[in-house]
Design a protein around this nucleic acid. Sequence first.
DNA 1: GACTCAACTGCAACACGTTGCATCTACACG
DNA 2: CGTGTAGATGCAACGTGTTGCAGTTGAGTC
Lengths: 164, 164
Amino acid sequence: MRLPGVPERPGTGSASADWSGVRARLHDGGLRWTPQRRTLIDVLAATDGHVTGAELVERCRAIDPTTTPSTVYRTLDVLEDLGVVRHHHGPDGREEFHVLPEREHGHLHCRACGRSWEVGAAEVAPMLEALRRHRGFEADISHMALVGRCGDCVAADDRAAGGD
Amino acid sequence: MRLPGVPERPGTGSASADWSGVRARLHDGGLRWTPQRRTLIDVLAATDGHVTGAELVERCRAIDPTTTPSTVYRTLDVLEDLGVVRHHHGPDGREEFHVLPEREHGHLHCRACGRSWEVGAAEVAPMLEALRRHRGFEADISHMALVGRCGDCVAADDRAAGGD
DNA sequence: GACTCAACTGCAACACGTTGCATCTACACG
DNA sequence: CGTGTAGATGCAACGTGTTGCAGTTGAGTC
Ligand SMILES: [Mn+2]
Ligand SMILES: [Mn+2]
Ligand SMILES: [Zn+2]
Ligand SMILES: [Zn+2]
């Protein structure tokens, strides 16, 4: 029973999602609902797109200054088991989390300009399908992060180097 | 003029390679040949396949106990610029180095059993080619690491779960 | 062999997580 | 509403790198 004065700000937060369900799913697994976990869920609900682990710790501390990194990272592990978040690693190996991805996707990171893009499952499916057929290997698309140079940076380099 | 008593153990070390050339190429770039760099080169020359950064630091310390991590990591950066080593990141984001890869390749890591495999450039070329055509993105194959479950572990899971 | 100076090193501090362990607490049950 | 207990927390120590800076050194030049 939602009060009229407290709109849920639909469209904000990731996917206007079933955060309510998380508590129930924790209980179903014999896990617990704690103040620390609620803090992190609040942060995640207000987050869109990709965010680093360190950034999540910082945002939790903004709500509750007593927040401890180990608790946040352990809770993120739990939430990933639940499928609520997914992580991959940036070019330097640091963790990046995606909250409730609507569609499964991999990641592209440009070393030159630092920007990143999502790449839909369909776009990489042929290769992953080939890996499964040839080797039986089932790759985790969400964890995939390709590093390289984006079109803009390649063009810029070409202009600087070979240009006539 | 190699002495008979000090065989080079051909086949050991990576690619029985042109380590001699490294010193010259450093000089060409205005860089220096130091005892610390020689230690790391000695370690790399005796290494086959993939090895973590931490492991390299440890092996340098075995030769020279005064070895400092920052020097090793900075030298690895230099050597990667020279193309002597390549690195990627394991499932946990830690660095793994490959010494003088004979052929360019990506990496497969099984989350369940921890084993890993190389995947030849040809095997992933179609997808990377598609990325280049559609987006202009040039992915670095050597840095690619796909995480998932290998054929053996998938089969084992299937047997445990669905098996009749 | 001495001079010079950019490249290099070592150190200390930091960033990002992870782990072991003692303590605490959510919550199922009576 | 108490009690018991498995699950969760907080802390301290650790692992893996990275960075700023002051001091050192490789190697080109005379
Ligand atoms: Mn990297
Ligand atoms: Mn990972
Ligand atoms: Zn770019
Ligand atoms: Zn496996």
